[in-house]
Design a binder for these strands. Structure first.
Lengths: 335, 335
DNA sequence: CTTAGCACTCACGGTCATAGAGTGCTAATT
DNA sequence: AATTAGCACTCTATGACCGTGAGTGCTAAG
């Protein structure tokens, strides 16, 4: 793969990405290679097809990149784009004005990312490597039932109604909660389930403390998405069946969570192109993923879903901006 | 509007609803009116067009109902459908197995409703006519900052980091929380903001208590939706622009919340057909809305969005089933 | 009031021809 | 040896044309 071939591949990718029209030798010569004739470019194109980087929709059409072509482009030719400073400022500003609430920040991230990427944005909730119990509270809601509130580091709160002895009044519950706080403070889910509970603690309470902490650790099962409206603008999704296939995945929380968590990069950028997706339903799509981090132990995934001809360079730059701002916003809130 | 005309209108609505093909006099005669000739039906159809209940896509095509036609159908001709017992049982069963968590139940409701209606489902969070404070807790997260936790009736919990005096330790915070609980217990947001706070209470805490309660009262601003994948199956949304228009509303939380809360029926069924929608973007859609209630003071809205030729009878029946089960599930959890 | 009959309308689908973009190959050029 | 001009060929997209058939409205008879 010599340099000229790379330039041509790059030109085809850029051009097709913007126009969504198969690009021919003539157009290339005119738009990108004033110094070459269309015949020369034809020869190169022909070889790029042989090598699997390009394809022809039909014999007398221009070329479009294959998934392999995009892969090469992403791995070796990706232009380092930057987010225009005015846009950058504007986005930063909107994150600074975000409501101090985890959900609100995640939603802002999704909305912003879908706007900036002009595609579908995915955001997972923050995952904590190890949630530690800070505080326990029990509030009587009716005889025999109390609302258990567990607070962990990172301001995570878990609540659940539990059964308690019918003879316990609010006074007794508060005392019990204080004992539990003293007993378990600073512990993780594993430690809690191993340590014997203080005398008189209802069984369900301890169970719920541990499982609550575990839930806090894996809020990543929550995947929010935004920007489906952008998807339908792409000519490749004019076919209702294709669109439906993708929508089915996007709306299936579990599947989506599995896909994202399988791919989630701890650091840096992860790009999955078309057929590289394990999920058949996503084989017309590309994913661009990265992670945000808030503090040392808290992190989540941010991603963009679009057609394989998505503008990788631009999307990557904007994704990284949003990831950084999301991390910062959550840090301010949680640590 | 005599009875025969009504029958014909009903037949056109039913037929078009199922086939999505303009229905002609001949087809009507053959399928629904064996005793009448197509010529007679033609005369009636022609009058129904004059009256505004039907329309013709073009001069030599069959008839399709207008919004007014659907309105008449819904108001006077709607068949009382019932949900088939096996389906009913199956749905009831899935609600019985729902996780004891408000969000989980609402999501189950949305998923179920979109499946049963074969359209887009909308669900708002429960609104409380008047939230009353049950319990206050303050947890030190770092010097000068504490996590304020307010518990109201209906197991509603609000949390927020607030600024407190840097000299307060956890001990002092707990005492303060106890005083606040004693001081404000049983009060609504309005009452709290009027009553003077106990000495030594940081200003932000009282403010936050009141605004937290108000937020609990109006969790209706949360509207979740599911089943967009069903939307693209409808031939009327094959046009990407139409689809996009609707998607833009569905993805705009605020707008959607405004639409739903404006229409939300306190009781019974509310149907909005095509142009009856205030929002221009929804003029190709119909909404079918009802409310669910959990206990005496807690209620929310459930709805279906589909094309104007949605099967009103069937959707209404299924919507009411889901509404009932949602209410029951939330009641079990919250009261 | 209903219906048979009839002329008329119009979308739909198929065929056909044309235009134009694009290719691959060959031979000439540098 | 690489590049390019030239040319024949391929294939799609577009638009014109036309027959078919579903459906209508109107009229006159039952």
């Amino acid at each position: 793969m010599d340099q000229r071939k790379e330039r041509i591949l790059g030109a085809v990718v850029s051009d097709y990405t913007e126009t969504v029209v198969p690009v021919g030798s003539h157009a290339l010569a005119a738009r990108y290679f004033l110094e070459l004739s269309s015949a020369t470019i034809r020869n190169e194109l022909s070889e790029l097809v042989d090598d699997g980087f390009l394809a022809q929709p039909h014999a007398s059409a221009g070329r479009i990149p294959t998934d392999l072509g995009y892969r090469y482009f992403v791995d070796f030719l990706l232009p380092q784009e930057i987010v225009e400073p005015p846009l950058r400022r504007q986005v930063r500003h909107s994150f600074e004005g975000a409501a101090p609430d985890v959900e609100a920040i995640l939603e802002l991230a999704a909305a912003t990312l879908s706007r900036l990427s002009e595609n579908v944005a995915l955001v997972t909730g923050p995952t904590q490597s190890e949630a530690r119990l800070l505080h326990v509270e029990l509030v009587l809601v009716r005889p025999g039932q109390a609302l258990l509130i567990a607070v962990a580091n990172g301001n995570a709160v878990h609540q659940r109604v539990v059964e308690v002895g019918a003879d316990l009044d609010q006074e007794a519950l508060s005392q019990l909660a204080n004992r539990l706080t003293a007993h378990y403070a600073g512990m993780s889910a594993g430690a809690i389930s191993q340590l014997a509970a203080p005398a008189g603690t209802p069984a369900q309470v301890v169970q719920e403390l541990a499982s609550g902490l575990r839930q806090m650790e894996t809020r990543a099962s929550l995947v929010i998405h935004d920007g489906v409206r952008n998807l339908v603008r792409n000519p490749e999704f004019e076919d209702p069946n294709r669109l439906r296939t993708v929508l089915e995945v996007l709306e299936a929380q579990r599947i989506l969570a599995a896909v994202v968590s399988e791919l989630a990069p701890r650091v840096g950028l992860q790009v999955v192109i078309g057929h590289e997706n394990r999920l058949q339903e996503l084989q017309d799509c590309s994913l661009v993923l990265t992670s945000y981090r808030a503090g040392d132990h808290l992190w989540g995934t941010l991603g963009v879903v679009g057609p394989t001809r998505i503008r990788y360079g631009r999307v990557a730059a904007r994704l990284q901006l949003v990831s950084q701002l999301t991390g910062e916003a959550l840090s301010r809130l949680l640590t």
